[in-house]
């Protein structure tokens, strides 16, 4: 009798990197078009992915379409390699593509990112894939999709400056700190996804290919290598990135983007690198910040010295508004309404 097989599930086999080849082909065509027209949002037939919208379905599809068996994949979420979104997506491709993964920026050939650009400069052989919640930079200024397309087609971007005007009128400076609009190759205005504006200058003349995938909105756009990317501003209120008063408390790096970490309920806090790989690398080289553990006998880890859960602490907005982060799984609407949001 063969009844002992009853109830066993058949083995499930996925195609390499989950998506079927025809779907990948469709996505690659959209990517090629996006590269040919820098900053232009190319519609594509986004598939349902085994994860909820808002958790990187667009980025995952782009990564799946460009991934080869010899690629080395790195996935970051808010700069960290060890947060839920990063771990889940890295695990997804380990399982469905069997590719090598890494946390080291320099070793990766493809880096999928949510809301950060790594501190280590990228090279020509690398691709940076962004997860995009809302691709349309004019969305909260002009609700009609037909009209925003027309505005892009005719290069009418006065509206974008109305938003920046409102920022200055209300706050005395341009208060947009993330998803800060850029002009790509002197033509299209683009939403760089919710990266802190600190990272905007890294997009300009970047040697790596930058791809942006929005799964729910079904759009792909791209910045080809060595493309001019300019952050919008006013002549008398030029674009400026966030500055931090102190260097990283763990690796003493300055000129990098820092996360605020609350240490206790008595106002104790520290600022540490948001890029965990960069921070760990500097500590390995012997750099010590004011709150780092002593160097002797320290085991090297991906994570900086403290409890690995530190990046999971709910962010608290510092007074100077340097925090460009939003909350995982809430990439939809509520956290993106800026000063001029919800206009008719």
């Amino acid at each position: 009798m063969t009844s002992h097989h009853t109830g066993e599930m058949p083995a499930i086999r996925y195609n390499f990197a989950y998506l079927d080849e025809q779907t990948k082909r469709m996505i690659r065509r959209a990517i090629l078009k996006a590269i040919a027209i820098p900053g232009y949002q190319v519609p594509f037939a986004a598939r349902e992915m085994p994860m909820p919208y808002g958790w990187g379905t667009g980025g995952v599809q782009v990564t799946a379409a460009v991934l080869g068996p010899h690629d080395v994949l790195k996935v970051i979420d808010q700069g960290a390699d060890d947060t839920t979104n990063a771990v889940a997506i890295r695990g997804f491709f380990e399982k469905t593509a069997g590719v090598a993964t890494t946390t080291a920026t320099a070793e990766a050939t493809i880096i999928q990112t949510r809301h950060r650009i790594p501190e280590t400069p990228l090279g020509e052989e690398q691709i940076l894939v962004y997860q995009v919640p809302i691709p349309e930079p004019l969305r909260f200024l002009e609700p009609r999709e037909t009209e925003t397309r027309q505005l892009h087609a005719l290069e009418e971007y006065g509206l974008m400056h109305v938003k920046l005007y409102e920022d200055i009128a209300r706050h005395g400076h341009i208060a947009t700190t993330y998803a800060y609009p850029v002009e790509v190759a002197g033509r299209y205005v683009m939403d760089p996804s919710p990266i802190p504006k600190f990272d905007n200058p890294k997009m300009d003349d970047c040697p790596a290919l930058q791809l942006f995938g929005a799964g729910r909105e079904k759009r792909i756009y791209a910045i080809p290598p060595h493309t001019r990317v300019r952050s919008l501003d006013f002549e008398d209120h030029p674009f400026a990135v966030q500055r931090f008063a102190k260097p990283c408390a763990l690796c003493a790096a300055s000129g990098v983007y820092l996360d605020e970490v609350i240490l206790d309920d008595r106002g104790g806090r520290m600022f540490v690198c948001s890029d965990t790989d960069y921070c760990a690398g500097r500590q390995a080289q012997g750099h010590r910040g004011e709150m780092a553990a002593p160097a002797a006998g320290q085991a090297l880890d991906v994570m900086p010295g403290l409890d690995p859960g530190i990046h999971g602490v709910p962010p608290v907005l510092p007074a100077q508004g340097v925090d460009g982060r939003d909350k995982p799984g809430h990439d939809g609407v509520s956290d993106r309404v800026g000063g001029a949001g919800g206009m008719p």
């Binding site: 509206l159 005007y165 001029a340 008719p344």
Partner: peptide, 22 residues
């Protein structure tokens, strides 16, 4: 634009024709 300040409403046309000095 009901959610934009009076100044922004008046300034919109100027910005649309290329004014970039706040």
């Amino acid at each position: 634009r009901m959610a934009v300040s009076a100044g922004g409403n008046v300034g919109e046309r100027l910005m649309a024709v290329g004014w970039r000095h706040y």
